[in-house]
């Protein structure tokens, strides 16, 4: 194993640990629930985006249909809870499992599609899911599901006013998604994905193993996103198809990764840390005018960042060490 590569990975791990510790201490200083709410959403989107990045960034299979898995996670958890009394903790895992199975089932035909055909297929499959839930009477159809909140309970993972449990759960999920990505980077799968990206012809020779590793990536990605969906449902205590399966979720999962740097370890986290507070604050402080100014600001920023930094914000940090890293990556890939 290359020394520099190993050193960078060690450093990444240390930085992540330090940031996570800092984040864990944040609630000591941030008492305002509105700000806490933003922090939770930021962490949640960082986690979702990190999971999305595994499939779409590292494998290059751009999915704009991850809202499907998000919704499945949310619905599985809440249907099991409200109809059968299964605790959300188990529902969460069940939702993740179902989502992973669906992702693998879809992966089989989907991975044969390329480029726009794949992207549109993912959008379409999520829309189908949305429409089915919208018309599924047993699952509440358009009425959605209201989760009865009876008081603070770790067992049922519901809390009346306190945001802290949600905060730490989101933080945990975010760390988990980051760690999985970190671990994958140095795995056999990560190696194949890089090889395929660098050299498309290599894909042919690796054919079957790459296909299998992509299926794995889809499953891991879907599982984590579904757990995120289950978390969101518990956090909101109310779900309806439009608000957990809408197309905007698919975009919101992709945006942080794209802005931060797609296919990079730190991109999604960085993107979410900037994008989500920005979205929330523009809406809260200039959105009440009814004149759409918040939309203009938000949209213009997305255009500006995508144009100015096509490799994402991460490239700002790495520009100085660019040379080094290219060398590392090449070595890592050909090791």
């Amino acid at each position: 194993m290359d020394k520099n590569f190993a050193a960078r990975r060690r450093r990444d791990l240390i930085v992540a640990g330090a940031l996570a510790t800092l984040a864990a201490l944040a609630p000591l200083f941030v008492k305002d629930v509105y700000v806490q709410n933003i922090l939770i959403l930021t962490l949640m989107y960082a986690a979702l985006s990190q999971s999305w990045n595994i499939l779409s960034g590292y494998c290059g299979q751009i999915s704009l249909g991850h809202a499907l898995y998000f919704g499945i996670g949310a619905y599985t958890t809440e249907l099991l809870f409200t109809k059968f009394g299964v605790l959300p903790w188990f529902g969460m895992l069940a939702g993740g499992g179902i989502a992973a199975l669906i992702a693998m089932g879809l992966g089989y035909p989907f991975f044969r599609l390329r480029g726009h055909y794949f992207v549109i297929a993912t959008i379409v499959i999520a829309e189908i899911g949305l429409l089915l839930f919208q018309n599924w009477e047993w699952a509440g159809a358009a009425m959605g599901i209201t989760i009865p909140v009876r008081g603070d309970s770790w067992l049922k993972f519901q809390f009346l006013r306190s945001k802290l449990p949600y905060f730490y759960f989101a933080l945990g999920l975010c760390c988990l998604a980051w760690f999985v990505t970190w671990w994958l980077e140095d795995s056999k799968w990560g190696f194949w994905w890089r090889a395929v990206k660098d050299n498309p012809e290599a894909a042919e020779s690796l054919g079957v193993v790459v296909f299998n590793s992509k299926m794995g990536a889809a499953a891991v990605s879907a599982f984590l996103v579904a757990v995120g969906g289950a978390f969101y449902a518990q956090f909101l205590a109310y779900i309806d198809p439009e608000s957990v399966m809408g197309f905007q979720f698919s975009l919101l999962m992709a945006l942080p990764a794209v802005l931060g740097g797609i296919g990079t370890l730190w991109g999604p986290v960085l993107g979410a840390a900037i994008l989500i507070p920005m979205t929330e604050l523009t809406r809260s402080y200039i959105g009440g005018s009814g004149r759409g100014v918040d939309l203009i600001v938000y949209g213009a920023l997305i255009v500006a960042i995508s144009l100015a930094l096509p490799q994402g914000l991460v490239s700002l940090f790495s520009r100085a060490k660019a040379k080094n890293q290219v060398k590392n990556q090449v070595k890592g890939a050909t090791r």
């Binding site: 759409g292 939309l295 949209g299 213009a300 997305i302 144009l307």
Partner: peptide, 29 residues
Amino acid sequence: AMRAKTNAGMVQIFTTFGLAIVMRGLAQF
């Protein structure tokens, strides 16, 4: 957006997506 050397597809998607939001905002304004 087309000049981007890496992940041009994503840059195009999100540039035009951002543009769409701006256009909606301007229309509302």
